[in-house]
Write a protein that binds this DNA or RNA. Structure first.
Lengths: 136, 136
DNA sequence: CCGGGAATTAGACAAAGTCCAGATTGCTGA
DNA sequence: TCAGCAATCTGGACTTTGTCTAATTCCCGG
């Protein structure tokens, strides 16, 4: 995959997002890294050379990407949300001690026996998190 | 089940927790309610009559209960942790719009095909969260 | 070049949770 | 009963993540 800044513009447009300079930088940080980043990590990456993007813009942009389905949110740790550029169906392995988060491909995993949803409700997503730690 | 304050003392002792007045009140709030409460909801319940228990104690006690396996933590919303007095295997249904959290009995649900854990790691728990919302 | 809507910004603010040093509690042994 | 002592509790300052707002800047069509 090519996650160059040039290609980010097209990716943003294809998700109905106006590609501005800051948005391209943020998308580039997320996609070229291909890992789970928190808002402050994104901010640090985007502002490594010189301060270019404000905190408000980082938060606004992540929220926008989320709404437009460009990225996913992973909630495993109450104190920090992670953003995941991988939007294909997958689950997560969470190392409790280190905070490390790894993807689990969903194609191998089967979940059966879930009860029917209450009337008028639709599923927005199923999050499966396997919490692991080093054996004592 | 009897979740009277008198019985809470025994429950605490059986989990190796010194039953103090504040701890009994907090346990009573959680267990008699039998629902998913956040720290500030617990604090409000415990201090309805008159202010009896400080914020620090509520947080310390919830953390203690968690370590001792008396309650579980449910992380669905980045801004607030819920505490669950039901520690038997079960999953959660989360209504995104209202924040309502419902239990799913785990005995009906089967999860298969999870990959082997990295060497030297053990599973601490598996959290399955089904996020739902009202159909548009 | 100009007007205007979209985007960005700094910084004040809010809320959840942590931390600490001092006060209280409630045993224990004499 | 009481002093001593460890465990517990407390208020309040503090930290961190994230939100809000009002003012500015950017960019595009005309």
């Amino acid at each position: 995959m090519d996650y160059s800044r040039d290609n980010m513009a097209g990716l943003l447009r294809s998700h109905d997002i106006n590609p501005t300079h800051q948005r391209i930088e943020i998308a580039h940080a997320l996609f070229s890294h291909q890992s789970h980043l928190s808002a402050d990590q994104v901010m640090a990456l985007v502002n490594t050379r010189h301060s270019e993007t404000s905190k408000a813009t980082v938060y606004n942009t992540l929220k926008l990407f989320l709404e437009k389905g460009l990225i996913r949110e992973v909630i495993v740790n109450p104190s920090k949300v992670f953003y995941d550029p991988n939007t294909s169906a997958h689950h997560h392995l969470y190392e409790v001690d280190t905070g490390e988060l790894t993807d689990i491909d969903a194609s191998q995993v089967h979940i059966s026996g879930l009860p029917a949803l209450p009337a008028g409700m639709v599923t927005e997503g199923i999050d499966l998190i396997v919490r692991i730690r080093r054996a004592d």
